[in-house]
Write a protein that binds this DNA or RNA. Structure first.
Lengths: 147, 147
DNA sequence: TTTATTATTAGTAATCATTATTATTTAAAT
DNA sequence: ATTTAAATAATAATGATTACTAATAATAAA
């Protein structure tokens, strides 16, 4: 029989796993990894599996409900989807939010390039944050061989 | 006995593996992954190992001889270390160079932020390139569940 | 409310890029 | 030529992420 559902194909279901993961990401100012999100969410849902966390995070990302930030091969997630950049400390690996940058760049405002239209963008700044700089007696060696 | 070598600590040796990898990266306009670099370099050095390629690429990156570009969990390398951004096509996954952006942004020019000094940065634009757009009858669905 | 349907999940195994290890090789200093 | 330690090749290990499958549970239909 014919359904009245306007959605073609699969219907999205509301589950508490989705809600708790999104609520957690909206509640924190940090940028947790999937692994950390899994550990935190498991406090509320002890039976949740890692695969579920990864799948839900990917779905949220694809729906632009969260942003993904790649740091040293690990994906971190940001519940704040407003336009902003990130500063990543090469010592403590903390991720800092940088607002007030995107309205300056004409390219970002126009969202157009010769090669194609910009759907999305990511800006990463790297350096040593002031906290870490204060702790350093000298600057670290350039080729530390570490990622 | 005391050495006259100005370098503190380890001495860097010149090897053909390093030279061939860097020459390859300088010669191409594309942005190959470590895996592809390994396959290409092996044509000249059939006995080179993957570990060597990864280590040399990391060293080159740490010495700012090459740039690393992270796309979908895979690290790609760019022999052009001049200031430029990248446009990544979400369909064909090609990486396009975008020049003429960095001189616009005051923050990038000043290299200073409240949180710390900018040593380095990466700008990624995402979208569908014109080539792929021409092939598409309609826009793809948002949540394709693919990375 | 009960039943049927199927999206979603939990648990686990598999994948795959990258890193670590170690014996061997080799560039360069003596 | 000999020495020495940096670099390599080969291989194993790691670890984040994905794939798979049987069980569960959110909706729709009866």
């Amino acid at each position: 029989m014919i359904t009245n559902n306007k959605n073609r194909g699969s219907i999205e279901r509301i589950t508490c796993q989705k809600e708790i993961i999104l609520d957690y990401l909206k509640s924190v100012k940090t940028h947790p990894s999937a692994e950390l999100i899994f550990r935190e969410v498991r406090k509320k849902l002890p039976r949740i599996s890692q695969g579920t966390v990864y799948r839900i995070l990917n779905n949220l990302k694809n729906k632009d409900k969260v942003k993904a930030i790649s740091v040293g091969g690990i994906t971190h997630f940001d519940g704040d989807v407003s336009s902003h950049a990130h500063f990543i400390c090469q010592e403590c690996h903390n991720i800092y939010d940088i607002f007030d940058i995107c309205q300056e760049c004409q390219i970002i405002k126009e969202q157009k390039l010769k090669v194609g239209k910009i759907k999305n963008y990511q800006i990463y700044f790297y350096g040593y944050c002031k906290k870490c700089r204060a702790k350093m007696p000298r600057l670290p060696k350039k080729d530390s061989n570490r990622k």
